[in-house]
Design a protein around this nucleic acid. Sequence first.
RNA 1: GCCGCGUUCGUCUAAGGGCUAGGACACCACCCUUUCACGGUGGUGAUACGGGUUCGAAUCCCGUACGCGGUACCA
Length: 527
Amino acid sequence: MFLPCPLSLSPMSKKVRVRFAPSPTGGLHLGGVRTVLYNYLFARQNGGDFVLRIEDTDQSRFVPGAEEYIFTCLDWCGLHPDEDPHKGGPYGPYRQSERKSLYRQYAEQLVKSGHAYYAFDRPEELDSMRERFKTPNNPSPQYDHNVRMEMRNSCSLTLEEAETLLEDGVPHVIRIRMPENETVTFTDMIRGEVSFHTGLVDDKVLLKADGMPTYHLAVVVDDYLMKITHAFRGEEWLPSAPVHLLLWKYLGWGSSMPQWAHLPLILKPDGNGKLSKRDGDRLGFPVFAMNWTDPRSQELTKGFREIGFLPEAFVNLLAMLGWNDGTDQEIFTLEELISRFSMDRVHKGGAKFDFEKAKWFNHEWIKRSEIARLKPDVKKVLENKGVPVNNEAVLEKVIGLVKERCTLLTDFYEQSKFFFEAPAELDVDSVKPKWTNEKKVLFESFVAALKSPNGHASFEKWAAPELETGFKKLATDEGIKPGEVMMPLRVMLVGGKYGPGVFEIMETIGKEETVRRIEFAIHQFIK
RNA sequence: GCCGCGUUCGUCUAAGGGCUAGGACACCACCCUUUCACGGUGGUGAUACGGGUUCGAAUCCCGUACGCGGUACCA
């Protein structure tokens, strides 16, 4: 453990710790889950910890139920945190609203060291500043070194003035004082070296008037306090990275700053831009991991879980959106992903989300999954649709028979309901035109033979191959080509032109039910 | 506007100086199947553009275009 490490200055004993830090304001987006996944894979692969931290610093955006929803999503995906607000951990609390008292001291430390200042500007004053400095060439003026001295803050005011305002309890924020002319550079795990000119970045608010930190202060403080070693987040954070880098430095924690990785965005399938919930609604596919009902509007947004995705497939397809292991393999278990994942094979460019491919992943997973794995989910699908499932052995047999034709778990309803209840309606139109009295006679003798197999050796044993032999022989004996009556038989049993082999179906539903359905159907086909 | 990040078949991507630019989804055709699927075989289809560097560039450099992200007391 204490071997010299000549190639690296960072101690090898430093345990990998990563975090996912969502703000609980609604459903969990695809991209969010992928960020969780990459964090999780990286942590597991390195024997590290995966922390879930709730970033609820904006109280005006509080949405009841959103936090619980996140827990459930991660749970469904099988991406379990090692530390979170529920189970706690050595670095709690894990909800930023409960850490409120922590942040102020760091903000003030920055004020003392000259890297931040108090600002007393009221919202109207900020608006008017933006109005005043707005030009065609600068449509959105920033609060930066250019205007700093024209605003009401502890840089422009005298010490006495500022102190008076503070003592009088005038509402104020603390802003970082961005240097006017420096270059901040860091190495992103995905993008390599990235640099920024500090003079172009605004004086971000660190501590809000209500005493809550903004994201900028909170990430840095919490990542430090929680000993985070690698920080992965969406690409949309890249522009504010220089603020975070400087904060780590100014707070005196530079040597323990995590390594950053800014993940590429997940884009909408048509056109460009970040994939949003709206796109899903518009194009007819889910964007959230699970159903989400907005508590205010009661609007329901569909999720991958409810639409019939297996979590294994969901995780698999998310992993492949921006990463691959360099081989042609596309289907990975979580375990495989943990061993193969590597941050340096993560793409730089955003990926358009393709729902067709997503469904393909699910189909593959359904086909490859054991019947026992599928059983509880399929049972739930059928029960939700009111299909009576009273025989576990039959259910298992049915799953084996139909799983390769189910892309979504919900497809099991259409594909297997006729095993459990007689079809309510028959697709008579596909039989009627070619229906003849001879065929009717054939089915009548088929039923008779099934009822009393004497003389029909094939029907004594109730099994698909024998049933097929017997039925075809019977047809041939009656002078009818077997092919002519296969479709009618199928429609009688299934109700439509689909499903597994007809004789497999007969074998599964049993003699009584087979006879009942044929007898019922014969009358339906009469012209 | 400014700053940053990107750019290989329609989509996800492989190929990190030397290939007929490979795979997958989707699509098309055929085969299998007396249904629907599964499966099999084959096909259409891409290095944004312009300059360099090099014997040789999708790959390295520069520029252009385009796209995206950011530019809040939101994350």
